[in-house]
Design a binder for these strands. Structure first.
Lengths: 379, 379
DNA sequence: CCAAATAACTGTAACGTTTTAGTATTTAGG
DNA sequence: CCTAAATACTAAAACGTTACAGTTATTTGG
């Protein structure tokens, strides 16, 4: 148990005020005189080294002394100076979250951050955001972190089956965990949602509703989970002897409007699907709009199964829109925990998780008062 | 112009590889041998001091020397060591974003982060997230940042009219900018959306649609913009001689479900409103659901005007749902710029902005194919 | 009783940077 | 020609921390 050492915004209570509220400071941002090891050394009459060791329970310090030092440290509200530690040890106490700011699976960013913060609270770790845009090379932020040593660990999102960032981080020995798997023969920590199961369940659900011709709004090509979701979808179709309606013009990356338009076209064209599996909340919404613009009624002419983030937006969105939830908050929580474990030496092979939230339940029209009373199940 | 000094993930291109890809490192996260001032000093045959000064264009270094030093620095990919700088100067090159993780005005977090990152790219600043939950004292993260001097500047969200965090930061001389104004006689940097104008416009729009009895889904009590929005709403009602329908059971803080339920009740009760102003996208969605559950049709029995974040979700959501956009990305961009300006010495009074996106346009039913062709304007 | 081992503590150096107070060398002023 | 000032450069110290190599006392064991 790091006791006093545990620093960070979520750490044990703040010290009683350091002193008087000093009006001016020499350097921006620094509270005037915060206690250092020297302060404690002076107060206890011990050497700086002794204090340092006592605080981290070194074996060659007397028990009584440790107690004394810790007491004083707590009293004066000692918090180790991050810059000092970092300079000396190279340890940054920083986890870097690298994210594609343009990607916005609705609640993803905030939920993920929330989860990560939850894990990091009470540890000395800070969360630093290292975003990049699509115009940049995705390698940029990764290289930056490694080259400048600006973090002890990294969390990656939007993972690709063959992801150069993963190779780079692995080669450079930087601890990292990815949201999503890879397929490149590198053993690394990851947290993934079982998109295959999701798609499979979605198909089963639609099959149960009597649907025969299904379309999938899939993630953009290249991401690992694109394959997973497609596999699950196709296997599901096979299992239930249903037909696929190809839809390649849009992916989850497209805007709601674009998806809506694509779905409208699809539904208005020849041989439209009677069931749609949407890989994200945005796609689900877009699909609804598109179907409506084509003059169709969800739950009657077609049903949709959509994924949504833990931010519960879709559940009550439309009848005929069935929802399976992926919990990004949990993902963030777990990813952070994995990175911390890596840093502490846990082997990556023990830090691989695939989760699945469980099956969705087909929702009936009765959940939606304003709709015509007509069961969505076609027996 | 900080040239070479400009560090950060968005900085000029990375150095050509430091050396061979070393497999093991002494300390996690550090690339093996990255160049320091000492390296450059050795290479140029100059003293460390000279190099340091040359890189920051000190006046007492010869022009030729500066050129030489900068060239070498660029060649070896020199990046100042953050810990060194921070230890020596107290400067962290960090901006801390303090946010209530439970608050989730749909795109807020990610949009804001995107904006902030945009400003910070190309500067040496990193963005550190310091979240807190409702169970904590909102002062905790603020105190933490000040006491540990862990940032050069702070961005606050969910600002209150009388906000102890603002007082604290001001008293301790920590540069900060708030998203939203305060009313406590402290001059500080802020970026605010003109919620009074928003509500006023929303009312005008509903008045133009012939609506007479309006309800407002307002922010939770205590936040500054709650007052603004209410004022705008009430003034608008006055101007158009409309009536207010009180709605106090829910605020923007409530979940979509809770809002939907409250609106359903409201619409089913005596004297229901025929127009609703929703202060956030979530509230707008909830209001739609609630109205539908009460068996009403948007655009016919009632109209709704909702705010939404720049993440364009509502525009095509329902007919009768009119949208006014608040751009959180711009807010983040501006807030970050303001904090940087503060750090560089710009007085806070010059860093106060209220923006307004402009009026919404009443949307007609014809935008929505599946709806009965019936104009939403009641002449 | 002395050597060796143990326990408890400490000084020095170093991490990379900037600031302070310099030292040479050249130029200008009288 | 000598002093004063300007120019170009630099060594040393310090920021707070930890690793390393000690240094005392005290205890053990032969």
């Amino acid at each position: 148990m790091k006791d006093i050492q545990a620093e960070g915004p979520g750490a044990p209570d703040a010290a009683p005020e350091t002193g008087k509220p000093q009006a001016q400071r020499k350097i921006a941002g620094a509270g005037d005189q915060r206690p250092t090891l020297k302060t404690i050394a002076f107060m206890t009459g011990l050497g700086i080294t002794t204090v340092s060791k006592a605080l981290k329970d070194a074996p060659d310090i007397g028990e009584a002394t440790k107690q004394r030092v810790k007491l004083v440290a707590k009293q004066v509200g000692y918090r180790p100076n991050r810059a000092g530690v970092r300079l000396r040890t190279g340890r940054t106490n920083v986890i870097s979250l690298i994210l594609d700011t343009e990607e916005e699976i609705i609640g993803l960013t905030s939920q993920m951050i929330q989860g990560i913060s939850e894990t990091l609270a009470g540890t000395p770790y800070h969360l630093v955001l290292t975003p990049y845009t699509r115009r940049q090379d995705p390698m940029d932020p990764v290289r930056y972190v490694v080259e400048t040593g600006s973090a002890d660990g990294v969390i990656l999102s939007t993972t690709r089956a063959d992801d150069p960032r993963v190779r780079y981080l692995d080669e450079h020995g930087m601890p990292f965990a990815t949201h999503g798997r890879t397929q490149m023969g590198i053993t690394h920590a990851f947290h993934d949602y079982d998109n295959e199961a999701f798609a499979g369940d979605a198909v089963s659900l639609l099959a149960g509703l009597g649907r025969k011709r299904l379309a999938l709004i899939a993630p953009p090509a290249g991401l690992t989970y694109t394959r997973h979701m497609q596999d699950g979808f196709l296997n599901g179709l096979n299992d239930h002897s249903l037909h696929a309606v190809p839809l390649t013009s849009v992916s989850l990356q497209n805007s709601i409007q674009e998806i809506a338009e694509a779905i409208r076209k699809l539904m208005s064209g020849p041989n439209p699907p009677d069931g749609i599996v949407a890989g994200s909340a945005g796609a689900g919404i877009g699909a609804c709009f598109g179907a409506e613009q084509a003059g169709l009624c969800l739950g009657r002419e077609l049903d949709i199964v959509s994924k949504q983030s833990s931010f519960d937006l879709l559940t009550w969105f439309r009848p005929g829109l069935n929802v399976i939830t992926e919990n990004f908050r949990e993902a963030g929580k777990d990813l952070a925990a994995k990175v911390l474990a890596l840093i502490e030496g846990t082997p990556a092979k023990d830090l691989q998780t695939v989760v699945y939230s469980g099956r969705a339940i087909a929702r009936t029209q009765s959940d939606h008062l304003p709709q015509p009373a007509q069961p969505s199940q076609i027996p």
